[in-house]
């Protein structure tokens, strides 16, 4: 597990995810009226196929660095009171959480925009990959996007 935890930024790649309430408490600030928590969850289908599990691979050290940069940008841009990205690696079965993104801002609109902005950047630049395992016989598994 790789982690950066400062007063207002928390990044974790790999390991078990913390409880959502602990992430919420981390980002909460007295001057922030909005705390926005996002959970990415493995769903049971994709492109018409049954999915049973996702397997995440990661370039841990770079992913940690990229997520830190994304959160630094969010802190400046919105601005956020505190922000966090926590991402599992390895196996994540259907119904389990693979990622948590959390942001606090003074007002609700910015908190939603900040979460969406962070997720968009994660999906573009953070070196983490998912492999989908399909439920049908002989359907096997495939790296997403490959």
């Amino acid at each position: 597990m790789h982690q950066i935890k400062t007063d207002n930024i928390w990044v974790q790649i790999g390991g078990e995810l913390p409880a959502l309430k602990d992430v919420s408490l981390f980002v909460r600030r007295d001057y922030c009226g909005a705390v926005n928590l996002f959970e990415g969850v493995t769903r049971n289908h994709d492109s018409g196929k049954q999915v049973t599990m996702l397997l995440y691979d990661s370039y841990d050290e770079m992913a940690l660095h990229q997520c830190e940069k994304i959160l630094d940008e969010a802190m400046q841009e919105f601005p956020a009171g505190a922000a966090a990205i926590l991402h599992k690696t390895g196996r994540v079965p259907v119904g389990e959480v693979s990622m948590i993104v959390a942001v606090s801002t003074p007002h609700r609109k910015e908190s939603t925009e900040a979460v969406l902005s962070i997720i968009k950047k994660i999906k573009k630049d953070v070196p983490i990959w998912k492999k989908e395992f399909f439920g049908g016989e002989s359907e096997g598994a495939k790296w997403k996007g490959s």
């Binding site: 990415g40 995440y56 990661s58 370039y59 050290e61 770079m62 992913a63 660095h65 991402h87 693979s98 990622m99 997720i119 994660i122 999906k123 573009k124 630049d125 953070v126 070196p127 983490i128 990959w129 998912k130 790296w143 997403k144 996007g145 490959s146």
Partner: peptide, 26 residues
């Protein structure tokens, strides 16, 4: 060395070079 590099960057002795296919985190 854990930063995205321009295609024209000249590599140096000891560099850590990672090949990043389209990512799909989240």
């Amino acid at each position: 060395n854990r930063e995205y590099a321009n295609p024209g960057l000249k590599l140096q002795d000891g560099d850590e070079v990672a090949f990043i296919t389209p990512v799909s985190g989240g």
